[in-house]
Design a binder for these strands. Sequence first.
DNA 1: TTCAAAACATGACTATTGTCATGTTTTATT
DNA 2: AATAAAACATGACAATAGTCATGTTTTGAA
Lengths: 246, 246
Amino acid sequence: MSKRPKISPKQPIAERSGPDAPAGLNQIPLLQILSAQDRQKVLGEMTETRYGKGEYIFREGDPTEYFHIVKEGSVKCVKSSLDGKECTLKVLMPGDLFCCDASAFDGASHPGTAQPMGDVSVLRMKKEAYFKMLRANPDAAMEVIRYLGNRLNEAQEKAKVLALDRADQRLASLLVNLAERSGIKDPNGIRVTVRLTRQDMANMVGVTTETAIRIMARFKKDRLVTGTAARLVIRDLPKLKLLAST
Amino acid sequence: MSKRPKISPKQPIAERSGPDAPAGLNQIPLLQILSAQDRQKVLGEMTETRYGKGEYIFREGDPTEYFHIVKEGSVKCVKSSLDGKECTLKVLMPGDLFCCDASAFDGASHPGTAQPMGDVSVLRMKKEAYFKMLRANPDAAMEVIRYLGNRLNEAQEKAKVLALDRADQRLASLLVNLAERSGIKDPNGIRVTVRLTRQDMANMVGVTTETAIRIMARFKKDRLVTGTAARLVIRDLPKLKLLAST
DNA sequence: TTCAAAACATGACTATTGTCATGTTTTATT
DNA sequence: AATAAAACATGACAATAGTCATGTTTTGAA
C-alpha cells in the first residue's frame, strides 16, 4: 500500500495511458454506458485527483462545483451535528457517483463532507459539462436516475433501521451489508475489505464508540465475527442476518 | 370535504374537463416542464385514481408497474419491521413523484407501502410509457434527477437526525419541517395542514406513541405548540428550531 | 525498535426511552 | 344524541444505551 501523498496530484485522464488505466475505468457503469466516442470525450473533461487519509475531498458547506466518481478506494460521506457528533451516511466504493444530482448544483452548498478512507482516487468534472453530457445522452441520464433511486432506497432503508432497531440489530445489519458489498472469501468466513474501526462502525449506526465496542465483543464471544479494523471477518452471516431482522 | 369513496374510481385524465382540472395539474413541476404538446400526450397516458383512508395505493412487496404523481391530498410512505413496528419515511404532497426511479422497475417489488392520509388523488402511468417519455425529454429527465437528488438529501438528513438526536429534538425537527412544508398562517402561529396524530408523529421520528405524547405535552406546556391532530398549531417556531439543533 | 497515538476494552453509574397498565377525552358514525 | 373506536394522557417500572473514568493493546511513524 502506498504512503499518504503530501500533495494531491491532479492530471487530465486523457493523458493517462498504460495497461491498467482502462481496467480501473471498467468498474464505472456510467462510463460503460456511453459509446466509445462519448466516453473519450467525457474522460477528456474529467480530472483525476488522489487523496490520502486525513484530507477532505470537500466539506459540509463548501460550494458545489463538480460531479464526482470514485475510481479507487473508499470515500465516506459524513454529516456533523453542532456539538461535534458525527454520522457516517454512506461508504462510497469504486463506481459510485456523488454530487450527481442537479439539486446539488442549484447554487447550493455540500450537505455533507466527503472524506477518503485511506488512499483514494476520484474523477471530477465541472457541473456544466456533466449536465451537457446528461442532456446529450439519454442512456446516461437514465443510469443516473437508476443510481439515485438505488441510493434513495438505501438511505430510506437505513432510516428505517435507525428508527426501529436496537443497537445490536443495527450493527448486525451493518455487518451484513459490509459482507455483501465489500466481502471476499476467507478461510474463516467473509473478510471485509473496507477498513473500519469500532468508531467508524459506531458512526455508521448511530451509537457511541463504547457501545459499538461492547456489542462487537459480544458478537466475537458468540463467534459471529473475529478481528478488528485491519482484519474484520464475518464468521456467521446467517446468524447475523437473523439477528438483524428479529 | 368529501366522504371516503367505497370504491376507487379511475378515469383517463384526457376525459376530464372543467375549470379546476388544469389548476390541480399546475402544481406538478414535472408536467410544467414539458411542452404543451408533450404534456397532452403524457396526460393521455396517465390515469387518475382516488383513494380514501384505510386503502392502500400499493403495499410493500407488490410488483412495481407504475410511475406515480400525487395530485391532491397527502400520501405516506411506510416501512414495517417483522414484529409489526412501523416507520413513516416521508409524507408526499401534491407534485411529489413516487416510483420515479428506474431501479424501482428492475423487476423489483415496492420497498415500502404507500398509504393515503385522508382522501387523495394520484396520477399513474405505465413504467414503459414513463421511460419513453424521459428518454424523449431531456428536460423531464433532468427534473427527475433534480427531484431524486432532493429526496436523497432529505432522506440522509433524516438518517442523521435519527442517528444523532434525542427524541425531543427529533420531534422538534419534524414540527419545523411540517411548518415549512405544509404550514399556513394562523392567529396563534403556523397551522399544520397535514393531519397527524401523535402516533403518526411517533412513526415519523422513531419513538413510541407514549413518548411522542409526553414530549408533545411538554411542548404544549412550554407554549411551543397547541392542539392535536385536527388542529395542530406551531406557536414558537424559533424556539423549536433552536431545540432541534442544540 | 521505540514510542506516541489511536484503537480497543471494561466497570460503575446515569439518562433516556420503552413497556405495560389504566383511565379520560375526542372524533366519527349510526 | 348515543355510542364505539380512536386518540390522548399519565404513572410505575424496566431495559437500553450513554457518560465518564481508567487501563490495556495495537498500530504506525520516526
